[in-house]
Design a protein around this nucleic acid. Structure first.
Lengths: 315, 315
DNA sequence: ATTAGTTATGTAACTTGTTACGTAAAAGAA
DNA sequence: TTCTTTTACGTAACAAGTTACATAACTAAT
């Protein structure tokens, strides 16, 4: 089994932590028997909390010990069945059920304290013998994970890996259909297709590239997942247009890579200004444009109906 | 909740380990969704083992990954329901069920490997950020606990604590009844009471102390839990006798403490030899006597029927 | 060759939590 | 005030394992 952890590597950290925890908890039960303390090991956190503080409510205990309330509810019920609980419904807020340990339960405390001390000594002994302190390691780990969840970290790693595999390539005729498809995907989702769209989407070569523009396609493992076009307005001004990234690939910074490439291209073509037209509903898109350096400008009407914002980048 | 761990201290190590493990495993499930790998997180160890090695049996997998066989059995069943398993009953030992991943299952491997790599990177990142490495700490901890279980360690600590509270005191008349009781407890358990017992147990003062012997009682929290007597044979030879420790207090080295005290007393009384008579059935007792320095001697008949071994300590 | 023990596996029930959901009481908003 | 939302808590169902037990197939010992 240990070999399994070694070959699988640290991916099994969760499983391994859990196994070790289970083992310790299992032994804890045996220890309770040893000390003649008629408590179940799992009752301990609840018992301990109640011993520290009178008139706890179920939810209070749950938040203190980090369980859910149904868990505490069940444990209290079991402890009650064992004759250890005093229910006081006297609270003025009728929702709360305040509970206390009764005399029988409190009488167990001295034995329990001895047990705890011995257990603590035993753990300290183990921790002293290990060169890497698991208690401190857990504190560190919990701190780090509170900061940024493991899931989020994996997401980031994935993004980095995928980003490395994304290639920005020039448009060629075999991309025609995909180019249209990618653009229709988002237009149809948020708006309706306008006549102006039809023209440039059906004949990109004629309408965009021939007049001095450019089109880039983003490819991932041989699949085209995004596109972006540069349309010539005059010798020094170009329009960034037809930016589209398929839904499944969103969040991987494909748009950013396409934008960067198109800006570079515009510079090479002699532009000193790029503008674009968009809609404020498309918040991720607007964010992307801002990240690329575009700023909002006013006062120039757009030929597109869906457009309600114009942005520019000067350089 | 974190405060709870701080006040309870390291006794809650088990719970805490388990919680952290659970959290990581919970996130693992989300990650599987992210990568479009149609495996349940809990299937992973089984899947991984089968991918590594063809024609595994249920029990084999179970031992490799450190689960019980019913657990693996269930997981395989679930994976089969998901259409990922090839059952081969072809093994010549009819008890084994050899299982394999089918093509559909193997096709998931590339995606899974990517996922594992990203997860590994994420974990390495966290481990790099922590000053105390939890992975190494767990290895240390598992090594230590394999060496000596937590239970055993607590047992030792308890023994030490209790030993400190045990007092060896001189016999006085109010101990008469308890003295008899303690001895009858073990005699009646293993043998039958002999006439010779009756005399010394009923009149310890007259039969043991008056003729120049001594009796010690071991007391724990005001309760007498053991006794041991020294009977004068001649000016330089004494018999160690009536060694008895109540069952509930056994394993706490009370016998050893009593033995040490009685040997010291004998020296003070001018003895150069102590002998005792016992029965080889009573292995813990014989062990104790050996630990006290007694060695087996032969050839001297005993007045007790139950005696079949004689031991001596010369000094 | 027969009997007794061991091994591989399946099934059922239990363990220790968790979500999901319903209900009563309180708090806030109109 | 009345209506909506939130809070406390119970119950039910689920999760991911476990132990306990039954059974079939092999192995070993007489």
């Amino acid at each position: 089994m240990n070999e399994f952890f070694n070959t699988v590597g640290k991916v099994a950290l969760g499983t391994r932590l859990r196994k070790l925890g289970d083992q310790l908890m299992e032994e804890a039960s045996q220890i309770y028997d040893l000390y003649d303390v008629p408590l179940q090991a799992k009752w301990f956190p609840v018992y301990y909390t109640m011993a520290q503080q009178k008139d706890c409510s179920i939810t209070q205990i749950a938040t203190i010990i980090g369980h859910t309330h149904p868990s505490v509810s069940k444990i209290i019920k079991e402890m009650d069945a064992a004759g250890l609980i005093n229910y006081n419904k006297k609270s003025k807020d009728g929702r709360f059920t305040t509970v206390n340990l009764n005399d029988k339960a409190m009488a167990l405390l001295p034995n329990l304290i001895e047990q705890l001390e011995d257990a603590r000594d035993a753990i300290e002994e183990v921790l002293d013998k290990t060169t890497h302190n698991i208690w401190l390691a857990m504190e560190d780990m919990e701190f780090e994970l509170d900061n940024k969840s493991f899931y989020k970290r994996v997401l980031e790693k994935r993004k980095i890996r995928l980003a490395q595999e994304i290639k920005i390539i020039d448009f060629s005729t075999e991309h025609s259909e995909r180019f249209k498809e990618l653009n229709l995907e988002w237009i149809e989702k948020y708006f309706t297709v306008e006549p102006l769209d039809e023209a440039s989407l059906n004949k990109p070569k004629k309408k965009i590239i021939k007049p001095g523009g450019h089109i880039y396609m983003a490819e991932y493992k041989g699949v085209v997942i995004g596109t972006c076009a540069l349309i010539k307005f005059n010798d020094t001004t170009y329009e960034l247009s037809k930016m589209a990234v398929t839904e499944a690939a969103q969040g991987l910074n494909v748009g950013y890579a396409l934008g960067k490439a198109i800006i570079k291209k515009a510079k090479n073509l002699g532009a000193n200004k790029i503008y674009l037209e968009s809609n404020t509903q498309l918040k991720p898109a607007i964010n992307l444009y801002q990240k690329l350096g575009f700023t909002k400008v006013v006062g120039i009407p757009s030929p597109y109906e869906r457009s309600n914002i114009r942005m520019e980048l000067n350089f």
